[in-house]
Design a protein around this nucleic acid. Structure first.
Ligand SMILES: [Mn+2]
Ligand SMILES: [Mn+2]
Ligand SMILES: [Zn+2]
Ligand SMILES: [Zn+2]
Lengths: 153, 153
DNA sequence: CGGGTATCTGCAACAGAGTTGCAGGTACCA
DNA sequence: TGGTACCTGCAACTCTGTTGCAGATACCCG
């Protein structure tokens, strides 16, 4: 019976790491620690994360600031992640859910700036002025998330 | 019969300037040259303008960079202007067309960047996660306006 | 018409977010 | 087990927006 093996400084949860690496190689690039760590983090995050939050979350395993920007750009370019700008004009990143990332809405917290993906159904298309062409429709919700609204402060 | 009077360094087109000043006073603030110039410019602009573009357009009449930011913030706060972040994470400003600025939706043209206020009914509020507080709900429509979609180009 | 005063403006200094260039390291293939 | 194209890290920079404060001024009032 083999003992559980934990490779160089990696946390347990090997299979999630492997999965991230596989996705990256499948996209035609090297599965470097930087990319693997970031993609794994995004895939496990409950909300869209900013560059800064990602840096924080990586803790000891943090990358160079610029490298993180480049990794995120690459993830977005390949479609493994997507990026949307929040109220404070910073970008937030989230893993592209295996399925689709089309028909849902976003809730943006005015307190912390985080973006939450909701399951809200796509709203019905309204009438537009003559000659207007509609390409995208999105429900934009604003307010305070549970954490920012809650009693804590 | 009174001769036409043109006040200190103002271009002819007095009535547009006066109109801007009136809107500003009605919002409960001083009709300073900075605010009047910026609002008049936004009201005559065919597209949404960035801070930088506004600075350029004002030419000799340009304000201090910071003052311009503050004027724009004020215009947005009072509802006299709209701000929407473009895809490159810079803000673009346009004069608000409608009278009311509560329950309506916006159409953003990907061609010219203009923001159009629509009469579309506010969509029904969806279910939110526990503890979330909703403060604003908005339908965000994207596409091409009649002018940008039309035969012209 | 003049003041008085809350409101605005301009300047300087700062902060956050993202970019560019380049020298050196390394994942992957042969 | 190399070789090399692809990545990473560092430094320096740009662009966008913010804050604090001293001085100016639009507007109200007499
Ligand atoms: Mn989403
Ligand atoms: Mn509007
Ligand atoms: Zn929040
Ligand atoms: Zn247009």
């Amino acid at each position: 019976m083999k003992p559980a093996i934990i490779r160089n400084g990696e946390q347990p949860g090997e299979s999630e790491t492997e999965r991230a690496a596989r996705l990256i190689r499948r996209a035609g690039a090297r599965a470097t620690p930087a990319r693997v760590r970031v993609l794994r983090l995004l895939r496990s995050a409950p909300t869209a994360l900013s560059h800064h939050e990602i840096e924080q979350s990586l803790g000891d395993l943090a990358l160079d600031r610029v490298t993180l920007y480049r990794v995120l750009d690459w993830l977005v370019a390949t479609g493994l992640a997507h990026r949307n700008a929040d109220t404070r004009r910073t970008f937030r990143f989230s893993a592209a859910s295996g399925s689709e990332h089309s028909a849902h809405s976003h809730f943006r917290c005015d307190g912390c700036g985080r973006v939450f993906c909701l399951d809200a159904a796509p709203p019905p298309p309204p009438r537009l002025p003559e000659g207007f062409l509609l390409s995208r429709i999105e429900l934009d919700l604003r307010g305070r998330c549970a954490q920012c609204a809650g009693g804590a402060q």
